[in-house]
Simulated assay, not measured.
Amino acid sequence: MARNNRSRKREAEYEPLDVERLTTGWRRTEVRSGRQWTVQPISALNATKTYTCPGCSGEIAPGVSHLVAWRNDGILGDQADLEARRHWHEACWKVS
């Protein structure tokens, strides 16, 4: 009988590529001025609308990668925080 030289361990560690996660970015939590913010990168492929950046009041055109940020420690609850989310240029968010 022929011997199989393939490592079974390598096969068990394989995880299929999560395309949705790659295209939506990596959601993270940041603390700024004592407040917690959820920050979600938006890829150029998923940027389909025009937004106004609160950092510079400039336009974020469709097809431009950017960030969406919202507080996650507001007193009005999670739904109100999510509805108050804003789209930022990446550079504007870094200096805010």
Rank of each mutant, 00 (worst) to 15 (best):
Y14F: 14
W93N: 02
W93T: 04
K9H: 05
T24E: 14
P54K: 06
V39F: 08
T29Y: 12
L82M: 08
W88P: 11
E20P: 00
E30D: 14
A80T: 12
L67V: 00
N72E: 13
V39A: 01
Y14H: 12
V68D: 06
A84Q: 15
G74D: 09
D73E: 02
I42G: 00
M1Q: 10
W88H: 04
Q36C: 03
E59I: 06
V68Y: 00
A84E: 14
N5L: 13
I42V: 15
V19G: 02
Q36N: 06
V64A: 03
E90I: 14
R3W: 08
L22M: 13
E13L: 14
N46G: 03
R86P: 02
P16R: 11
P62S: 07
S57Y: 06
E30S: 05
E30Q: 13
P62F: 01
D81A: 11
W88I: 06
D18C: 09
A69M: 00
R8P: 11
R8S: 15
C92Q: 04
S96F: 08
L22T: 02
S33H: 14
E83M: 13
G55Y: 07
V64Y: 00
P41Y: 10
G25E: 12
N5H: 12
A2F: 04
S57K: 07
P41T: 08
P62V: 03
R8Y: 07
I75V: 09
E20A: 09
G55R: 07
Y51M: 00
T52H: 09
W88A: 11
E13S: 11
I75A: 09
R32Q: 08
R86Q: 15
N72W: 00
L82C: 01
L17W: 05
E11P: 04
K49W: 09
R32C: 05
V95D: 06
L22Y: 13
G25K: 13
R86D: 14
T29I: 15
H89S: 05
P16T: 04
T48D: 13
S96T: 14
E83T: 05
T52D: 10
V64H: 02
A2W: 03
K94I: 01
I42L: 10
A44G: 06
I60A: 02
D18W: 03
I75K: 08
L82H: 12
N5Q: 10
A44P: 01
D78A: 12
E11C: 07
T48M: 11
C56W: 09
S7F: 06
C92S: 14
L17F: 13
H87V: 10
H66S: 07
S7A: 11
E59Y: 01
A12W: 07
W37I: 00
H66R: 09
P41R: 08
V31I: 13
H66E: 04
L22A: 07
I42R: 10
V19E: 13
W37E: 00
I75H: 02
N46I: 03
S65Y: 00
R6G: 02
A44N: 04
H89D: 06
G58R: 11
G74K: 07
R86L: 15
H89G: 01
S43L: 12
T50A: 12
R8G: 15
W70R: 07
